[in-house]
Write a protein that binds this DNA or RNA. Sequence first.
DNA 1: CGCAAATATAGCATTTTACGCAAAGCTGAA
DNA 2: TTCAGCTTTGCGTAAAATGCTATATTTGCG
Lengths: 308, 308
Amino acid sequence: MLYLRYLVAENAMMVWVVDYKDLQVFQSVATTLHLGRVSQQLHMSASTLSRRLSKIEQEVGACLIDRGVSPWQLTPAGELFRQYVEQTLSSWQQLRRNVSQHISDLAGSLTLYCSVTASYSVLADVLSRFREQYPRVDLRVHTGDAAESIARVEAGDADVVIAARPESLAAHLTFKTIAHSPLLFIAPKSINSVAALHHTPIDWSQVPMVLSEQGLARTRVNQWFQGQGIEPHVYAQVSGNEAIVSMVALGVGVGVVPELVLRNSPMANRVRIMPIQPELEPFAIGLCARAERLSDPLVHALWKTAAL
Amino acid sequence: MLYLRYLVAENAMMVWVVDYKDLQVFQSVATTLHLGRVSQQLHMSASTLSRRLSKIEQEVGACLIDRGVSPWQLTPAGELFRQYVEQTLSSWQQLRRNVSQHISDLAGSLTLYCSVTASYSVLADVLSRFREQYPRVDLRVHTGDAAESIARVEAGDADVVIAARPESLAAHLTFKTIAHSPLLFIAPKSINSVAALHHTPIDWSQVPMVLSEQGLARTRVNQWFQGQGIEPHVYAQVSGNEAIVSMVALGVGVGVVPELVLRNSPMANRVRIMPIQPELEPFAIGLCARAERLSDPLVHALWKTAAL
DNA sequence: CGCAAATATAGCATTTTACGCAAAGCTGAA
DNA sequence: TTCAGCTTTGCGTAAAATGCTATATTTGCG
């Protein structure tokens, strides 16, 4: 006769990898008691389902389903687990309800100002996420010239603006970057329209440039030309990045615009991006507000939401 | 002014991938409120931990931790979630206790009979697993000749036997395969000791064979020789596979034994395995019991345990 | 104001895990 | 005993998680 002396640690194989999906799976199985049907119902192959059940049983530490009979039957442990799953899942949903309830308690109104440039790419993201979590906050969004944005926050016309980060930021303002957009040189699609581009290397003094009248983009371009030791031939100075794309498309000359402006421009397919080295320093797009406004729960909430 | 019309489905991004590990992680973080310390404590890199927290927040649908202060602080939603986690984890452990309680309630005694051959490989597996789940069951294991095993179940001397599956199984017996072991031809290490093996192809009529007196192994060997149209030269008939290995090791002739007997034989390094084609049909090792005994909860439990 | 420490994120290589398909194994019924 | 349907397993591939490193932020503290 053989005497046993196997000692098995209680939680030896526990890895705590059961997730809520597993619980849902088990719930379906416990209801349907038929692997094939459940696998169809849950759009997963029978093998996946089978393995998932095994994993669960291993984690729970007991055989949960008596597969020896048809239809399947829950073992006593399985029945216990079924009840547990029911309770746990409902408790999880309950939590989510509570949380979203809690969250959506925030109410009030928030005024945003957004440069047209910025509105193209970032606005939708920021707003949809915020809207999801705080449906009861009344959002008012104004769009306008980028140059105005900082003034708007300072004046208090807007709680938050979405704009490119200015070269220098006043001390009482806070900025949160949420995206970057490179500054691109663009030329007409038909290179013939700007004869000077035919030379290699390009003789920039002969290239008619279409640039922003002022603002960050212009600053960056000036810095770039200066760094190259070049005196550009500025053909036209425009207010508003959108117009630059149009003018370039018409063959007037070469322009510089943020990538996201170009991406959203109806003229985008009528210009081409020039591979320029070194690249211009990209724009940082983000949120800007007066520092003291961050204590406002709504502003704070928006700030956090955008962070994700 | 821009009016919003974003409709965000309530559970849009839910993928239900939060597992218990995540809950543990959050619990640690909620207690320690310090990423670095927790990452050490839990043996994971800071980046992993950070990502994991983000995932959790996304699943819960709210920002749970205010990272803007030091030390961190739970948001209201975070506090809610912390309580939830506490409750859920304890409930999970409770379930496991209940289940193992439930499981280990099974008590009584079970008598196993096990052929020496089978005991080498399978017994430990089967028993340790069973022992883990049903610690209160008193297991009595007898070992003995394989040929006797079927008789033992039929007589009721053993509730279950572990043995090779016989060629034909009486109707009132059930068998559950849990392992396979190939049947191997073995020859002495020094080939010189059996001169007939020097020819190619082997002239089997000249090779002295050491075979089981009877039993499954013998049947298989007979079938094999018959299939080859060969009349073997049976030099010795032995009872018990173990003895065959010894005799072959001594240079008496060529034998046939299950792989697992060979693996566990102290003589294993004094014989060599012959690459024989076609291979003999392997043994099926498993559990055997009288069909009606399966209704006994203990037997049933053993049956299920062995299945995993 | 800026510096130092802590935290977050991106990119990458590597390991782990999950999945589906096909093949093998098992169960129940003819 | 054999057959058909249901399950499980083997295996190659796809997806996800993780650690590391580098970099950008952010907080706390002079």
